[in-house]
Design a protein around this nucleic acid. Structure first.
Lengths: 168, 168
DNA sequence: TTGTAAATGTTATAACATAACACTTATTTC
DNA sequence: GAAATAAGTGTTATGTTATAACATTTACAA
């Protein structure tokens, strides 16, 4: 039985991921009094259609294919909203976006990014949070945001360097 | 007496930083059989002229002002070389570059980035390395590169929010 | 001194992101 | 419920970061 933390790397019923993510998004927005508009919802669904990081222009292309008129500002606004609401993460080292799979408020997590298939696994990490925010580490620096990203090869791509099963 | 680890945030004889960095660059290149050409050297000097992150196009502008013909590919090539040689870091969350101040081989360090003055302090971090690279954390993920960046306010900007003394 | 590899120059363009303003849709207030 | 307000989206244009492709020059080695 696959552990939850490795789900991105395992064959699984991905529809359930999407359903769960969308349910959570709706209840989070309800709780915050934020509006999960059709555009925002659709962008989030597209992001959740895989565990791979998608670029803003990937999303734009997907929306255009669906017949939606989606210029860059529209998509970037949706992405901004979803980030602020804690529903997605921006991956700085890829200029791409991934659904947030940690179901709690602001958190410091570590993103493991497969350089080959772009699969991203998020790992919540309380110890990391403790360690990084220690005064001993930061000195008098006042932290606000953190980016922790590890790039490498996911288990699948280590075995099958050319044709990672979780790709596309 | 300021500790070495806080040097970026303290008034200091910055020329010594530059001299030290350039000496180290030269010996590192000698040791590796790499060529620290005039262009690469100049780019590194420009990066070291402050402890603030500089964008590629900042460097291009500076080079043009000096009369050097510097189109983007030239500068990006120099930056690529300097990164590979371990002389600079790219800051993913800023799309900018900073001199590496950790005098050893490949290392996992934490960059503390002031959102106000763009001052960047690098903190080498063996514990972080241990913590992040544990199998317990990464599972079967095979890590290659890491990005650890904390954005916030440096000590100076906490005190003087508008006019950080280390700015420019 | 000539051949080869490394580095740089040059032109063009790709990829990522936002500013500014117009328009539409939702929500509130009276 | 109609007017006022705010929130969201559309549209055009442009800013910012980065690279592809190929020509030329420079350094070093044979």
């Amino acid at each position: 039985m696959p552990t939850a933390s490795l789900l991105a790397y395992q064959p699984h019923d991905h529809d359930r991921c999407v359903v769960r993510a969308m349910q959570r998004a709706q209840s989070l927005c309800d709780a915050k009094g934020a509006r999960l508009t059709p555009m925002r919802k659709r962008v989030l669904e597209l992001i959740w259609q895989s565990h791979q990081a998608l670029g803003a222009y990937d999303l734009i292309a997907a929306l255009l294919q669906e017949g939606s008129k989606a210029a860059p500002p529209t998509v970037y606004r949706a992405l901004e909203f979803l980030q602020e609401t804690g529903l997605i993460h921006r991956i700085a080292s890829l200029n791409a976006y991934i659904g947030c799979s940690v179901h709690k408020g602001p958190h410091m997590s570590c993103l493991m990014i497969c350089k080959q298939c772009r699969n991203v696994q998020e790992k919540a990490h309380p110890e990391l949070e403790q360690l990084l925010l220690q005064p001993a580490v930061l000195g008098k620096f006042l932290p606000e945001q953190s980016v922790v990203e590890i790039t490498g090869l996911c288990p699948a791509c280590q075995k099958a360097p050319i044709d990672c099963p979780t790709k596309d």
